[in-house]
């Protein structure tokens, strides 16, 4: 039995992309919904993100990507997680994402895609209904 279980979420920005506002809005919003959010800041390598996810033992990773390199970066993070024997996490992506890329992501192992304009509560509800 988990007496004081809190859902832990890592919010990270991989790669060369200086647009942080969205990630921050999501981080603050999830905090206000009762999640413990670990925010790692800008320009993270896939390796750093994977290691942070493992050390922090997070249930969810949210990647915010507005650089256009979302497919490559997400693939890299997923590979690193696998390589480092991370436990199963719920992988979420947000940012500027073309609709036609969404189905490819689901195949890759991404559980949810939330583009700009998504109400934070929708992300929170999605997390709660997908975390055992």
């Amino acid at each position: 039995m988990e007496q004081g279980k809190k859902v832990r979420v890592l919010v990270a920005k991989p790669g060369l992309d200086g647009h942080e506002r969205g990630a921050r809005v999501v981080a603050y919003g999830l905090r206000d919904l009762g999640f413990e959010v670990i925010y790692t800041g800008l320009r993270q390598s896939a390796d750093i993100i994977a290691k942070a996810a493992i050390q922090e033992d997070v249930d969810v990773i949210g990647l915010s990507i507005l650089s256009g390199a979302h497919m490559t970066l997400t693939r890299k993070v997923l590979d690193k997680l696998k390589e480092q024997d991370a436990r199963d996490v719920l992988m979420l992506i947000g940012g500027v994402i073309p609709d036609e890329d969404v189905p490819k992501w689901k195949e890759m192992g991404v559980s949810g895609v939330f583009t700009s304009g998504t109400p934070i509560k929708e992300i929170g509800d999605f997390i709660n209904s997908n975390i055992s």
């Binding site: 603050y28 206000d32 413990e36 670990i38 800041g41 750093i48 290691k51 942070a52 050390q55 922090e56």
Partner: peptide, 30 residues
């Protein structure tokens, strides 16, 4: 947060490079 029970843990922001080095383990706690 005493209101939502959530937390924003931002200490990794200042230690992003060092936290991935061999021999280091960083854990944020609320």
């Amino acid at each position: 947060s005493p209101f939502s029970g959530g937390a924003l843990l931002g200490d990794r922001l200042r230690m992003k490079d060092v936290s991935a080095l061999e021999g280091v383990f960083v854990r944020s706690m609320a």
